[in-house]
Nucleic acid binder design. Sequence first.
RNA 1: GCCACCGUAGCUCAGUGGUAGAGCACUCCCUUGGUAAGGGAGAGGUCAUGGGUUCAAGUCCCAUCGGUGGCUCCA
Length: 693
Amino acid sequence: MPRITLPDGSVREYAEAVSGAQIAASIGPGLAKAALGVKVNGELSDLNRVIDRDAKVAIVTEKSRDGQLDADALYLLRHSAAHVMAEAIQRLKPGTQLVYGPPVDNGFYYDMRFPEGGGLSSDEFAEVEKIMAEIIKENRPFCRYDMPVDEGMKKLQSEGSKYKLDNAEKAIEAGSDRLSFYATGQPGKDWEDLCRGPHVPSTGRIGAFKVMSLASSYWHGDENSDRLTRVYGTAFANQKDLDHHLKMLDEARKRDHRVIGKQLHLISLNEDVGTGLVLWLPNGAVIRRELEEFLRKARSERGFVWVNTPHIGKLNLYRTSGHFPYYADSQFPPLVDPETLSASLLAHGGGCACGDLANAMASPEVDGFLLKPMNCPHHIKIYEAQQHSYRDLPVRLAEFGTVYRYEQSGECHGMTRVRGFTQDDSHIFCTPDQLSREIDIDIELARMVLAEIGLNDYRVRVGLRDPSSSKYVGSAENWELAEKVCIESAKGMGVPMTMEPGEAAFYGPKIDFVAKDSIGREWQLGTVQVDYNLPERFGLNYIGADNEKHRPIMIHCAPFGSLERFIGILIEHFAGDFPLWLSPEQVRILMISEKFADYAAKVKAAIDAAGGFRARIDDSPERLQAKIRRATEEKTPYMLIVGGKDAEAGTVSIRHRTEGDIGSVPLDQFVEMLREEVSSHGRSTVLSAVRDS
RNA sequence: GCCACCGUAGCUCAGUGGUAGAGCACUCCCUUGGUAAGGGAGAGGUCAUGGGUUCAAGUCCCAUCGGUGGCUCCA
């Protein structure tokens, strides 16, 4: 007599074991029709799974109760669509072997091995989709059946797929005592696949799908293993959601910061300078400078002091910090002392001794310099430059510090993944008593930054150690302590929080801010990291009230992360329509004809006299329409159109880059509105002020 | 780093073995105008680089460099 507890807390009793479908039907016919699967005590299952004991049960439908697309429903739909796609491709390309086909963030993929010379081309997607549509139209049920391990292995051996056998072996290693299969239709007759499930009840429930792209992959992700073709697809409960998803992808393409960055002359990437090295053009440099000045002020108000450090440091510094040689693969090779270099060359008759040199670098006797991969070691040396009393603490150091990391060539991407970048870095050195308050200061700063930029939809992610990895430095006790403090601080923020093992920095846990941009994509931005380990490695201390030496705790904080990445993300978030305070050019003055050049100059002089604005006169011989078009394409927030009428009345006619003509106001009034929009960071705008007046 | 695709004027791109093209941008001339392209003329290219095949290569082959997508990675 199972007692079933539903998500709203209500309890239903059933006389005998029931399936998810029966529970749904007993609640209502609408739910029975909408049900895609069932969650039993948190475990996602097929809708027809039989429940024979007391359990918490939730019926999975396409939308969760808050009206959002339900993640479990998408999982079921996509996993099921992967089977349908695999069947379609196997029908189109006989002899194709299947490897592994899971749902992923925005859809699903299936790794496949095509027969010699029989690969799939993206031109054939339409054919695949056509077959998929047929399978879906047939509305065949997904039928699960399982068998003991030895029987299942025999079945797979007879089918001869080494990949599926491997999957089964993996499942057995993980402790499965039975192997399950899913037939799309009737077992033994229709297409089937070794699969853990679960699936939607039948193919007809896959409302909308699309085969997206091809990529290559390796078996087990190992480049020495078999090369596979990964076919990506996506699926949704209905066409509307799929269309929305495709529109978002299109929107994301249009917002690509590499394209807009070029169009608006913000940055340049030049192969002669090097992969992953950003050149800031004058327009991009304006945005960067505004953000730097904004943060400089905010930090100074919070008791940070500014320091500067060089771009390189001796190897021993990074041996102490733990950066070298442990992360040698992701660093530029060390710069060697001239003496070391010549000695090494002499010893080898002037020939190349790179290998020997590399070996020598790994030993502590040989020194050289490293382009700094992080700023912390330098800041630690600044802390060490004086003796500290507990009365001095906390010491809050800040710097826009440029660091260099040797990202693999395939990893560099526009501004968001680069080899040289400037962190808005800070390090707080404090006593254990001060730790919680200092973390709060950093968290408040990071939240203020997001609010001023207008990124108000974010969550925090607490990055914890991966217990199975050995890449971390420091004692287990320190890690536990630091993780505890981070979790508590993050909990106190009142925003959604996740904890993710394996996401910690190598020296300590971190609190990352993950913000959603204007089209719903998530980006990791600022970060606050607690660190007991570097102070330990460097033997830092302060003199306590007891006249004894104590170890300070460090907090690393970078609200932007890096300026390159942050601005790259902002370009995509705003699609180039930067808020006025960040816009490279804020106002463009367009005169109707050269006859009004004097008035245009007067307008510009009035704006310049107000101080701190970026305005320009377009004095090209073009017609007004052409000037408007150009200023709009260049995303200048406000165009001031001036002609005889304006000169006479002392007004400016304002055109907004996206709203068009918004009317005219007296010149001095416009300047005041402009000042208000810049200083309020867009909370009040010229646009709204003109419309309200 | 691995796999695939790509590299033609400042930018976006066409050109599939037979005399290097278009639009925009640029320079000059005409046009002086009220809310997203006025007209005309001109200049601009060792077709990424280096080899090879061919009577003939932007085009086919190889290598190198660079880019894009994906994999792996991301302190």
